[in-house]
């Protein structure tokens, strides 16, 4: 059985590396990604982003079934990874910036 809802099986290859519930986990993935990693994930997500919004919005925050939650985590990962493709030329760090690992997200692990 697919980890994702019907219609989103093309995203299956990204589930293991990108579908995380927490900002910290997603950030760790970003910090260790290559330009190619960002690009293939970005291209696949952008293609189905509008339909992904429609699919996750059939459910309430906090009440998503498991498959929908995985899709939602991929959308969150895209939200955080897309600037690396669109603005940072594939760099895993924000260019000319402070050490991101020293930033503490004091809001905790908001995930859904």
């Amino acid at each position: 059985m697919s980890a994702l809802p019907t219609g989103f099986t093309k995203l299956e290859p990204f589930v293991r590396d990108w579908a995380f519930a927490t900002e910290k986990k997603r950030s760790e993935k970003r910090w260790s990604s290559t330009k190619e990693d960002f690009q293939v994930f970005y291209d696949a997500m952008l293609e189905c982003l509008t339909s992904a919004f429609e699919e996750i919005d059939k459910y309430e925050i906090g009440k998503m079934p498991e498959q929908i939650k995985i899709l939602y985590y991929l959308v969150l990962a895209f939200a955080e990874a897309s600037p690396h493709v669109e603005l940072y030329k594939g760099d895993s760090k924000v260019p000319y910036s402070f050490d991101a690992e020293r930033f503490v997200a004091s809001h905790g692990d908001i995930s859904d």
Binding site: I56, Y59, I61, A79
Partner: peptide, 9 residues
Amino acid sequence: KPSERAAMA
């Protein structure tokens, strides 16, 4: 809804 939460992220 979830898409708004993702847009906020």
